[in-house]
Design a binder for these strands. Structure first.
Lengths: 146, 146
DNA sequence: AATCAGTCTATAAAAAAAGTGGACTAATAA
DNA sequence: TTATTAGTCCACTTTTTTTATAGACTGATT
């Protein structure tokens, strides 16, 4: 399961995707609308900013907004930033590989199986973007992706 | 990621699948061969027994063994017993459903997306069984599944 | 009766998740 | 140039989950 933090991150990004190109949005606005603890959300948005998914502006008229168009940020990348690996075993993770106690044999069947599972999820999460969360996605996207 | 517990469970079941129909296997033997803490493994095997995946026999000549043939136990069922939900959000879990804060809209795009991701993993984990972890899987299985 | 091997319950230690507080910095505008 | 606004940063607490461990108990076998 995704952590609460990752769920909050996705909700916040959905909110910002729906306001893309409408200028900076206050953290407090997102927190209130989505029912996310304010200070917790601050940490989350900061992580997303450090990961180059969001941009911030300080002072009056400031806030957070997407760095690129919603269709440029995959769900996979968001999850990796907040929760780390998507794979179910460390030894089959593409971005967070760590050798794994499970793989005692040289040609480990367990890891091969979970590599298959990983590819299956990534087939979805690498293709879906924040655009797929936007309310008025438009006919083209919906036919193309849904 | 799977918990250590689930990883141990899968390793233990792999071991038992390779000894299917060879009589009861001692917990201590599995623990030693797979490098799993003995008392921790006791708890795990007990859970798997309570979930009708394993059978035990007490006293001399006792131990644990698979309740059914290795191809009757899916990886999905093992993971659900030990770690619970496979889905990434509670609101799209088939066996552990819980309503979810994320779904504020009536027709939630986030949950639809993660239902797709869930189906993708389950496509693998519901089809793969302990038989797929057996060393001498045989030509038929390998062609059929791999 | 002795021994073997799983069962059960409780608890401890460690790590991760979830959330909070407060001082600080940058930008804007009066 | 000062006040205000809003994000930044760091440290910390609390809670929950994970990862074990201990020891008494039950049932089967010899």
């Amino acid at each position: 399961m995704l952590s609460k933090k990752a769920q909050y991150a996705i909700q916040a990004l959905e909110y910002l995707a729906n306001r893309y190109a409408a200028g900076p949005v206050l953290i407090s606005e997102i927190a209130e609308r989505k029912g996310i603890p304010l200070k917790f959300l601050e940490n989350i948005l900061l992580e997303l900013k450090n990961a180059d998914i969001l941009v911030s502006k300080k002072g009056k008229g400031g806030g957070y907004f997407l760095k690129t168009a919603p269709d440029q940020t995959t769900l996979a990348s968001v999850i990796r930033v907040i929760d780390g690996p998507i794979a179910m075993l460390p030894c089959v993770s593409l971005y967070f590989y760590r050798p794994c106690d499970v793989c005692d044999q040289p040609n480990c069947r367990i890891s091969r199986l979970f590599a298959e599972a990983r590819d299956a999820v990534l087939g979805v999460l690498e293709k879906k973007t924040l655009q797929d969360l936007v309310a008025d996605g438009g006919m083209v996207e919906r036919l193309g992706n849904g």
